Amino acid sequence: MDAKEFCRQFNLIEFVKDNAESLDPFALSLEKFRVKFKAVGIIEISPKHNSNVNLVLSAGIHGNETAPIEILSDLVSKIFKEEIPLAHNLLIIIGNPKAMLIQERFTGFNLNRLFNGAWKDYVDDPVAGEEAKRAQEIEQQVQTFYQQVDYNVNDREGLDGLGQVRIHYDLHTAIKPSLHQKFAIYPYLHERSHSKAQIRFLVDTGIETILLYHKPSTTFSYFSSYQFNAHAFTLELGKVRPFGENNREDFLQFESLLIAQVSGQYEFQSNCDIHDANLFMVKKELIKTSEMDELGFDSANTANFTQFNKGDLLLDAGKNSYLVEQDGEAIVFPNNKVPVGQRMGLVVVKP
Rank of each mutant, 00 (worst) to 15 (best):
residue 2 D to E: 13
residue 3 A to Y: 10
residue 4 K to C: 06
residue 6 F to C: 07
residue 10 F to W: 10
residue 11 N to H: 14
residue 12 L to H: 06
residue 19 N to G: 10
residue 20 A to Q: 11
residue 26 F to N: 05
residue 30 L to V: 05
residue 34 R to E: 14
residue 38 K to T: 05
residue 42 I to R: 06
residue 43 I to H: 07
residue 52 N to G: 01
residue 54 N to E: 11
residue 56 V to Y: 05
residue 60 G to M: 09
residue 68 P to M: 03
residue 75 L to K: 04
residue 78 K to F: 03
residue 87 A to N: 10
residue 89 N to A: 06
residue 91 L to G: 01
residue 96 N to S: 15
residue 102 I to C: 09
residue 106 F to P: 02
residue 106 F to E: 08
residue 107 T to W: 08
residue 111 L to Q: 04
residue 112 N to A: 09
residue 118 A to H: 12
residue 125 D to R: 10
residue 127 V to M: 10
residue 136 Q to R: 15
residue 137 E to K: 08
residue 139 E to Y: 12
residue 142 V to R: 06
residue 150 D to Q: 12
residue 150 D to C: 03
residue 155 D to V: 08
residue 160 D to W: 00
residue 166 R to W: 04
residue 174 A to P: 02
residue 174 A to V: 05
residue 174 A to E: 00
residue 185 I to H: 00
residue 186 Y to Q: 07
residue 187 P to H: 09
residue 194 H to W: 02
residue 197 A to E: 00
residue 198 Q to A: 07
residue 200 R to Q: 13
residue 217 S to T: 15
residue 218 T to G: 01
residue 230 A to F: 01
residue 239 K to D: 04
residue 246 N to H: 11
residue 246 N to T: 11
residue 270 S to L: 11
residue 281 M to P: 00
residue 288 K to H: 06
residue 289 T to P: 00
residue 289 T to Y: 10
residue 291 E to G: 14
residue 293 D to K: 08
residue 293 D to V: 06
residue 296 G to E: 03
residue 305 F to W: 06
residue 307 Q to K: 13
residue 315 L to P: 00
residue 317 A to N: 04
residue 317 A to L: 11
residue 320 N to D: 15
residue 323 L to I: 03
residue 324 V to R: 07
residue 324 V to S: 06
residue 324 V to I: 14
residue 324 V to F: 03
residue 327 D to A: 10
residue 328 G to F: 08
residue 330 A to S: 13
residue 331 I to E: 02
residue 334 P to Y: 11
residue 334 P to M: 13
residue 341 G to W: 08
residue 345 G to P: 00
